[in-house]
């Protein structure tokens, strides 16, 4: 188990749990459901937002919020 903010660029992972309830609801309706595959594709400098690919579109969220998202790294896709 890892958190999304620590996921290196271009690594893929599965969403496990989103801790903040408000954040969870917002991300769920955008398609970030448990088990969904995500990939980090961009990072803004100085712990700015990070951009992820999810259900074939690009979504940006704040670094602090990414700390609240548990993920499971998908190893074989490296």
């Amino acid at each position: 188990m890892q958190i999304l903010s620590k996921l290196p660029l271009f690594k893929s992972a599965e969403i496990c749990k989103i801790h903040d309830q408000d954040l969870e609801q917002r991300l769920l309706e955008m398609g970030c459901t448990p088990g969904e595959k995500i990939t980090v594709v961009r990072r803004a400098p100085f712990k700015g937002p990070i951009a992820i690919m999810v259900s074939s579109y690009m979504l940006s969220i704040r670094y602090d919020d990414a700390c609240n998202i548990d993920i499971k790294v998908i190893n074989n896709e490296g």
């Binding site: 955008m30 951009a51 579109y57 979504l59 940006s60 969220i61 919020d65």
Partner: peptide, 11 residues
């Protein structure tokens, strides 16, 4: 209240 920045980046 906490604030969020959740934004789609369209192609």
């Amino acid at each position: 209240k906490k604030s969020f920045f959740i934004m789609e980046m369209p192609s």
